[in-house]
Amino acid sequence: MGHSRRIMIVGNGDVAADAAPVIDACDMVIRFNGCRNFGPAGRRTDVIALCNTGRPAKAMLGDAEWRESEAVKAAHALWMVRDPAKFESLREGILANHPELDDFCDDYTDGFAAFCAAEGKQHVVIDGGVHEKADADLRAHDPDLRVVPSSGMIVITHLLTEPAYRQDDIVLTGFSHEGWDGHPFAAEKRLIDAYIAEGRLSRLGPPHSSTSHGDI
């Protein structure tokens, strides 16, 4: 069966040295938050998927350099990976288990919506049901899911469940499966490897990375 588009999901980890032209030749390129490997990992940016709660969201909204960056300027859409209602429902449990994350569920979706409106970009909030499906799928690989799935896992789950992307060739690069210990990276790697074995995803270049930045 043919695929209508090639979609590249570019994590914030290392990519192969020759990856940039391959990434830029794709029909759709999705990056994350600060797009830290923009340049070495190509320049095409159609979508930026964002953590729209907590400190990362507050920092991006308040950062003129981020707002004026080439990647943000190029993107025609910003995807919010954290459904506001879902995260508000998580607040009490997160505070009980991780009191240091007192601002983790603070929502900045409206701020990003206003930014998108001013810049002529599409503003998309990924439904909380996608988060719940990611949780359910990850539990098969690790019952202890830590705090929340990574932004990368939410985007992957969204693309695999949304009918609009059913015929597309979805490729990953820049995913080290390392980073903040609140994300269940070991379980995410096992789940993604299972998706690859089923032919639902593929990877560009080496599946592991030595980057210290980790995933998103």
Rank of each mutant, 00 (worst) to 15 (best):
I7E: 09
I9Y: 04
I9A: 04
V10G: 00
V10S: 00
G11C: 04
D14M: 12
A16L: 02
D18C: 15
A19I: 11
P21T: 10
V22Q: 12
A25C: 05
C26K: 11
F32A: 03
R36S: 12
R44S: 13
D46K: 00
D46T: 04
D46E: 01
A49M: 05
A49W: 01
L50F: 02
C51M: 15
C51W: 11
C51D: 10
R55V: 06
R55E: 09
P56V: 06
A57Q: 00
A59Y: 05
A59E: 03
A59K: 05
M60K: 00
W66L: 04
V72D: 01
V72L: 02
V72A: 05
K73S: 14
H76R: 12
L78I: 09
L78K: 08
V81S: 04
D83R: 00
P84F: 01
K86M: 09
F87T: 02
L90W: 13
L90E: 14
E92I: 10
I94A: 06
L95D: 11
P99H: 06
D102V: 15
D102R: 10
D106S: 01
D107E: 05
D107Y: 03
D107G: 03
F112G: 00
C116S: 15
C116H: 12
A117Y: 13
A117D: 15
Q122N: 15
H123C: 12
E132S: 15
A134I: 01
D135F: 14
D135A: 13
D135Y: 13
R139W: 09
H141M: 14
D142L: 07
S150N: 06
L160M: 08
A164N: 00
Q167P: 00
D169V: 02
V171L: 14
T173D: 00
F175G: 07
H177N: 11
W180N: 04
H183P: 06
F185P: 09
K189Q: 14
R190F: 10
R190H: 06
L191S: 14
I192E: 15
I192M: 10
D193E: 01
Y195A: 10
I196Q: 08
A197C: 14
G199E: 08
S202W: 08
R203E: 04
L204C: 07
G205Q: 13
I216V: 06
